[in-house]
Design a protein around this nucleic acid. Structure first.
Lengths: 161, 161
DNA sequence: GCTCCAACGAAACAAACTTGCAAAAGTACC
DNA sequence: GGTACTTTTGCAAGTTTGTTTCGTTGGAGC
């Protein structure tokens, strides 16, 4: 079977490995090997390949926001006035640069951007709105949703075909 | 200085370590030690402690959804009819159980739930809406936003005080 | 049937993590 | 200010894990 660099086809082994890694990437390769039916070196080579191909984008620790004093999660829909390419790019980079903004999506529909924001207190969110929304005359309006419960949080994607 | 289990005070060392780990948790402890000014064992003990305290909730690999054939990210606001504790809990567990639902927040404001969904194609989303929304008579209405660009995606939280 | 290529596993090797222990640093209490 | 106690540290040894080497196997194409 061919698996060239330019066509990152993932076989059943790869997908099983990914399923384990996206749940716990500190799992020893030996353990992964036993689980999927490969030797540790085979697992290691596949992980390395997938990291190079970009299938595995990062290996990160997930922290508890509350433990770091960032106990408020807020959800914002932003609608802009002018949607020229230049202004959209400007907004994107502005949102991407803010450390409080955990996630930012450019979307279709009634809004143009959707943001997930994490801050220590409402006062910090208020300050952020002044800086980001009221201070930007291309923002038409925005709607705020405060999270009472982070029911499910993660970046896991289904790996089965 | 006391740092009992019940009061997880994080000092400057801890925060620096966390900042590194939430960017790349495959960084060797020796390297982290050099960066923060501690020996490798000291770093290891702090990491272990923070994992036990729950400050570090998980260690995961971040995968590229597109590489797994999950190329569409969708954002949904859900409004329910009845907001009794029982029905809210029911909705939470139903959303949490769906593998396509990557994130789910229970929020205040014009909507009750906000969902981040990842699917291979629009047809899959349509099927999901039928199952989850139209098939649930407590869902009053829902609004869909399709992501054109995942500008910023992650779970990073600011670690500075 | 032969060659070439890709991926594999076993074993050797290297690197990283983990633990025991004694010393240093910080606190509380005289 | 001094002493006892507690906590955390660094070093070094020991263990686990990750990585490379190398010979083998199974297919695809000729």
């Amino acid at each position: 079977m061919s698996r060239s660099v330019k066509s990152p086809q993932l076989d059943a082994f790869d997908r099983k490995i990914l399923a384990i890694l996206q749940r716990d990437n500190s799992t020893p390769q030996r353990t992964i090997g036993d689980a999927v039916g490969l030797s540790a070196p085979a697992v290691q080579r596949r992980i390395k390949r997938m990291a190079e191909e970009g299938v595995i984008q990062a290996n990160v620790a997930v922290l508890d926001p509350a433990a770091l004093g960032q106990s408020i999660t807020i959800f914002v829909e932003v609608e802009v006035i002018s949607e020229t390419a230049k202004q959209i790019e400007e907004a994107k980079s502005q949102f991407a640069a803010a450390p409080e903004i955990q996630q930012c999506y450019y979307v279709t529909g009634e809004a143009d951007f959707v943001l997930v924001i994490v801050v220590p207190a409402m006062a910090d969110y208020e300050a952020l709105t002044r800086r980001l929304f009221f201070g930007n005359n291309n923002v038409k309006r925005f709607r705020t949703f405060v999270a009472m419960d982070r029911v499910k949080v993660g970046l896991s994607v289904p790996v089965e075909r």
